[in-house]
Simulated assay, not measured.
Amino acid sequence: MKLDKQWRILTVGDGDLSFSLALSAQFPPSQLTASIYDSKQVVTEKYAKNSLHQLQSNQYTVLTEFDVTLESSWQKLAKQSIDVVIFQFPLIPAFDNYHDFKQQTYSVNTLNRRLLRLFIYYAHKYVLDPEGPMLCIITSKDVKPYCEWDLESSLLIGLDINYLGQSPFNISDFPGYKIRNVDRDKHVKDTSGISYVWSAKTHSQDLPHLKLPHYLDANHCSFCRAGPFLTERDKLAHNNSKKHKNMLLHHQNWQAYLKVESL
């Protein structure tokens, strides 16, 4: 993840705020706004070591109870006042009980895709400045369930926004940043991450560090990140595999959601 020192940054869903604190070493308060999903009380109870007080005492703005799926949260910010919005290792919270899970209309896979699609959509609608690069960055893991969200293709269906590419995320570039469990005070193992980038404006040639993965090329399966297929028999065997059928089901569920979505 490469960030220009002149950009105005908004972080969302930053758990214990350690990522925002790491960014504060690079950006002054006028260029960095942090936000978390939890209330002030919840974040202090959930994470024994959190950076809320430190950021606020250093004059950084921290928005609490910021839900990226709600327009009202985005409207807390000045319109078109941000250059880059960053969402680190997003994941919907676990359901409190089995009953709540069974009451859901959509699968967990669909709900995670919806979270990220609304993040990208509302960021562009409300806060990204057309005079800037207009970047949405999501850093995620290349393991299940994250790699099953079809980040590169599915989130933008019907939106006038482009997937620009991706780059490895190097946590050592952000000293003090700890990846936390979404529901409790636990440090998650620092597995390798990938930063994915979208924009309604900027083209990939303006960000040469971004690369398009090979599985988006022809003769590959972008759903499963598989290929290239050397023969039609190889492709057919893949299409009949359990993995592909599972990914196809995720895609069909996502298509069903998009048919009733109202953006």
Rank of each mutant, 00 (worst) to 15 (best):
L115W: 03
L3P: 02
L216D: 06
L212F: 15
E65G: 04
N239P: 09
Y215A: 05
L155A: 02
A22T: 01
S241H: 02
I36H: 01
C221A: 13
Q166G: 07
S57L: 15
C136V: 10
N112Q: 06
P228V: 10
S262D: 12
R184P: 02
V143I: 14
V42R: 13
Q104Y: 13
D16G: 01
T202L: 09
Y98L: 13
A94D: 14
M134S: 05
S18I: 00
Y37S: 07
D16E: 00
A237I: 15
I157F: 15
V84D: 00
G132L: 10
N239V: 09
R180W: 04
D150S: 13
K211A: 14
I137N: 00
L216N: 07
T33K: 07
V127C: 06
H187T: 15
I86E: 02
L164Y: 01
L263K: 11
G158Y: 05
G13M: 06
A200E: 08
C224R: 05
H220K: 07
F19S: 00
T61S: 11
V108G: 06
K125N: 07
P93L: 11
L207M: 13
L118M: 09
T69F: 09
F169E: 02
Q31P: 06
E152M: 09
D38L: 06
Q255V: 12
N246H: 15
Y126N: 03
D83N: 11
Y196A: 00
D83Q: 08
S192R: 13
N239W: 09
R117E: 03
L55V: 00
W7C: 10
T69Q: 11
C224I: 07
N109M: 12
P29F: 05
D160T: 11
H250K: 13
